[in-house]
Design a protein around this nucleic acid. Structure first.
Lengths: 138, 138
DNA sequence: TGTAATGTCTCTAGTGACTAGAGGATCAAG
DNA sequence: CTTGATCCTCTAGTCACTAGAGACATTACA
């Protein structure tokens, strides 16, 4: 049995965040000491590690809630879990695509201006003011 | 002179968002009709187009505020504008890098499980539960 | 000119996933 | 038994909006 601070250290999830997860229903309410402090066991640690890992992979709290629900029903099809992971993958790929377009545009804008002149003639500002100057869609 | 709805249509920025930008000081307060409704002119349209374009490129409200300030002082060096654009570029590149790592991991996780079995044996869930199964850092 | 539909106003509250801080209680070590 | 670290709850703040209520203004058409 260990305290919330100890759990925090082991999982690298900050203390207020742990309490937040509990409030959101991701973590079940742990036992308490007589003085009302939370005490966790191995199961709590495991659960929080799962959540942390999924958050690091960009899963939303909502998606994680569903995944946890599936863990709790080992008899259910794992199609649902796979679906969530695949949808997360699509999401990530869409974000990458968009960011790459932005990257190109920003490179172009930054290169156009050597930062030498006065802002009146600044290509960065001109580019932002006039979408027509853009080479790509974004 | 046109209404906030008209401005919204032309810039594709939603009406409440326009009001929000005004509140944040990005847009100066426009004239009003006798009935207290906002009326914009070409300058307002131009300014909002600038903001929209910068937001689409991922600049924060704070960064845009600085850029607008520079626009207002055409005598100042444009180094500052270039700096903001370059820093935005680094930001975008860092995000891309991170997302690519996530993509790899998600592909691996999704492929490991064909969604056929029950969730007890689901590789997706197992991967999330056990960080050790990961091939990459994230 | 009357009226109905649409647009606009301000204000408050909600989103997601936390983070920060106040003010007080509890715990573990010496 | 005291001290200092940790813990408790609660409220409010972050960012960039979005949604909704209830009231007022404008516009199009008969």
């Amino acid at each position: 049995m260990f305290s919330i601070g100890e759990l925090s250290k082991r999982t690298k999830v900050k203390v207020p965040t742990i309490r937040y997860y509990e409030e959101m229903g991701l973590l079940s309410e742990p036992e308490r000491t007589e003085g009302n402090q939370r005490r966790y066991d191995a199961a709590g640690l495991e659960r929080l590690s799962f959540i942390k890992h999924a958050r690091d992979l960009g899963f939303s709290i909502e998606a994680i809630t569903k995944l946890i629900e599936l863990q709790g029903h080992p008899d259910r099809s794992c199609q649902a879990a796979t679906d969530i992971a695949v949808s997360q993958l699509y999401d990530v790929r869409a974000k990458i695509k968009r960011l790459r377009a932005l990257e190109k545009e920003l490179v172009r804008i930054s290169k156009g201006c050597d930062g030498d002149g006065v802002s009146e003639d600044c290509y960065v500002l001109a580019s932002l003011a006039d979408h027509q100057l853009c080479r790509h869609e974004h």
